[in-house]
Amino acid sequence: MTLLEFARGPAIHWALIILVAGTIWRLLGVLVLTRGGDLSRPRDAFGNYKGYRTVFSRAWPSSEFNVATRYQTIVAYLFHFATLIVVVGITAHIEFIQSLTGASWPALPNAAGVAIGIVALVSLLALILRRLTNPSIYCSNLGDYITWILVAAPLITGLMAFAHLGPRYETMLAIHILTVALMFIWFPFSKLMHSIWFVFSRAQSGLTYAHKGVQI
């Protein structure tokens, strides 16, 4: 079995199994454990609505913090959107998703994919630089760094595979797939779950604040 056969076969397969089982486990493990209803009335006529609205309104900082968080907000936005676009916009990724689900859509030209991939990687570097230079703001733990490495690795290896840098293409492609497999395995048990949790955590905070009368 070649490295590519291993990566495309059992490695990514088991990573997907762990990703699916782990994510659903984590989700239900919290969601089934309900807190019980808040019996108080919201302090505001539109309290519940305002609470749910935080799912979206928390996507940008409160106006008081606009300046203080500008760097973080802009770079994080760049990173998240660029990453999302390369994940779902590159031909090879769409082919993989299609082989898994049957669904497909038009892809970006490769040049655009590379450009956006570079934006994602550079913004990720900018974010780690800020994290490293401002330890008191982030209070980073080991998981934060592992997550950063496991997110950066697929971006770097994907760009290298496309540009035919480093080892031969099939080896680089295999390494790219293996790094993605590692990220999939890490996903359910790490901060990467925020990509799903953010909806629930924001809604929960919003509702609690609405009931307590906190300005949101």
């Binding site: 056969e5 495309r8 076969g9 059992p10 990514i12 397969h13 997907l16 199994i17 762990i18 699916v20 089982a21 782990g22 994510t23 659903i24 486990w25 984590r26 989700l27 239900l28 493990g29 089934v32 031909t91 090879a92 990724h93 082919e95 993989f96 082989s99 898994l100």
Partner: peptide
Amino acid sequence: ADGQFGTGPKLASAAVVGAVAG
């Protein structure tokens, strides 16, 4: 780019296992 593994059943059972565990 296609994954070289059977898709449906194992992933579906993984989802069920995850749901039961969670």
